[in-house]
């Protein structure tokens, strides 16, 4: 899949990857019978996005992480795992990310007219 190796961390197996490797990793996961679990996006202190794709294989968690600047188009895996459709659409709602390789990324939680990027909004500090 990639030149990187899986490492045990945070309750699962983790591997860093380039964005260009994500689709081949997803394809490999499907061939092994892994179930797509979740797509997690977080924002680092430097302002870039940390992207983590999670799979379950026989009860074990496999997580592939990458980073991208805000606004970078991400590879879609929806043609490999149809179950990732909602995860990608929610990422668009929360972080305003766009995906390459899918016809459109319609909002999931938001309405058509709502601006994406809910999680990037800074109003309302910690209480």
């Amino acid at each position: 899949m990639t030149s990187q190796e899986w490492r045990q961390r945070a309750g699962g197996n983790w591997m860093p990857a380039n964005l260009g490797e994500i689709r081949s990793i997803a394809q490999s996961m499907l061939e092994r019978g892994a179930r797509f679990e979740a797509f997690v996006v977080t924002q680092t202190k430097a302002g870039e996005l940390r992207l983590i794709w999670h799979w379950d294989l026989k009860g074990k968690l496999f997580s592939v992480e990458s980073t991208a600047a805000v606004g970078t188009p991400l590879p879609s895996i929806v043609d490999i795992y149809c179950g990732s459709d909602w995860a990608e659409r929610e990422a668009r709602d929360y972080y305003g990310v766009t995906f390459e390789g899918r016809v459109s990324t319609a909002p999931l939680m938001l309405r058509e007219a709502d601006p994406p990027g809910v999680m990037l909004r800074s109003e309302g500090g910690p209480r």
Binding site: Y94, L110, V118, G124, G125, P126
Partner: peptide
């Protein structure tokens, strides 16, 4: 879906 969207993940980053 989204008719019950409450932004709980957003809220969680603003509460102890």
């Amino acid at each position: 879906v989204g008719f019950n969207f409450r932004g709980i993940e957003w809220l969680a980053q603003r509460k102890n």
